[in-house]
Amino acid sequence: MDVEITLQVNGVDRRLVVDTRTTLLDALRERLGLTGAKKGCDHGQCGACTMLLDGRRVNSCLALAVAHQGADVVTIEGLTPARGLHPPAGVPRPRRLPVRLLHPRPDLLGPGDAGRGPSGLAQCGRRRAARGDGAPARDGAASDDAASDGVVLDDDEIRERMSGNLCRCGAYANIVPAIAEYATAEHARK
């Protein structure tokens, strides 16, 4: 069943007719030619399809395009300015691109997101259980989705926030330091 929808994609209003079954991912890749978001597992497990939907990262393979009429969508292509490189891709702070999807820019946050920032809760139960004392190591290891101050963005916290993205470079150790470096610079910039 075809329906007409409007999306604001990377700042541009786009109107298109899609079958109701079309996911946001397929609409953008197949209809609008935005192939930066990838179709990995297509079941919400790998995170390769991650986009910012109204300022928040989502698995676009599980979002029906018709259900997001009028939404503001930013793909990886939308992070690049008209000229030059997106700041995280340039020197002197290299390899910071993943953090954009882990930690949306303040100007990409949606209404109600004010004050939302790094946070933490829900320390992994396995690590806690492994300690044998039932005590949480700290009130940490969460995601970008819980507002809280004073959470240390340490390696465990960064890894927890990355865990929605399974990628072949998951074993590439420098991603975690790169995110830490960028987050520190971002924090200093504010």
Binding site: G47, T50, R57, V58, L121, A122, S143, D144
Partner: peptide, 23 residues
């Protein structure tokens, strides 16, 4: 929720991923 029902906040953050929890 975080202040009065921390068990609920902790359970939510123990589930799925950031991308899924947003939807």
């Amino acid at each position: 929720i975080r202040h009065r029902y921390p068990v609920l906040s902790q359970a939510l953050l123990a589930g799925a991923s950031g991308q899924l929890r947003n939807l």
